[in-house]
Design a binder for these strands. Sequence first.
DNA 1: ACCAGTCATCTTGTAATGCAAGATATATGA
DNA 2: TCATATATCTTGCATTACAAGATGACTGGT
Lengths: 124, 124
Amino acid sequence: MTGDAKSPKGARRGESRRAQLIKGVLDLALLCILKERPHYGLEILQRMNEEAELDVADGTIYPLLHRMEASGFVSAEWRIEGDQARPRKYYALTPSGVAELKSLSADWRTLSTRMNALIDKSKP
Amino acid sequence: MTGDAKSPKGARRGESRRAQLIKGVLDLALLCILKERPHYGLEILQRMNEEAELDVADGTIYPLLHRMEASGFVSAEWRIEGDQARPRKYYALTPSGVAELKSLSADWRTLSTRMNALIDKSKP
DNA sequence: ACCAGTCATCTTGTAATGCAAGATATATGA
DNA sequence: TCATATATCTTGCATTACAAGATGACTGGT
């Protein structure tokens, strides 16, 4: 009746990091960018658009940053840099965020390897 | 007031194929698999899980197939194969699906190149 | 001083979709 | 007959990328 005898029932949603990866390359991109140095919001946006060509909107980046902060991967701090007058909110990687980056990028490597193999296989 | 002086409206983000890609590597994987030969639903599921390690559920694959069919990329046909008794629904690529595969895999190549560059840059 | 534009952050509403769980139906074997 | 396996499909929920809007503060032109 249930027809689903093999599915691991204990695995509630949110455990599967692979699903996360498939949906959000954005998470990985963000962690990579913050690994280099702290950035503020619009700066991240610019780097994603120009460098990674991900074509992200600011309505995407701020909720993403807040999710990452709530997960403990990112910390935020208002700061005044150099000669600019207004403070900007700088986001930085936490140690736990560094670990997450390591884990996510390993997952990415696996996924991209498999996908490339699939694509090659589908060619003459 | 509206603070909306910057939006270059028009064609900007309409297509969203990139968003599609980011979210759904599944689409690409499906097209690749069907390019080789027609498959029926659970067969696709097995290949995705074993070969691509995408960890997909059947509640994912059937809606995906129906979307692809509605988009004209995939055609479906009940068929009886060899000695098995019950018919299975075989899905195959249409010419338009082949074109979509070509387009999507080009997008994939771009994305994976940029992501790998980002990841490399974030390393010591 | 005033006003328009820019920078920067944040919120809201919508649409897409992956997924667990359930429903349905048929064939096979105990 | 009943349980199991195969196979397809549906439903409800949670996530989330995005457009559009809101807010506030500084700057430059007049």
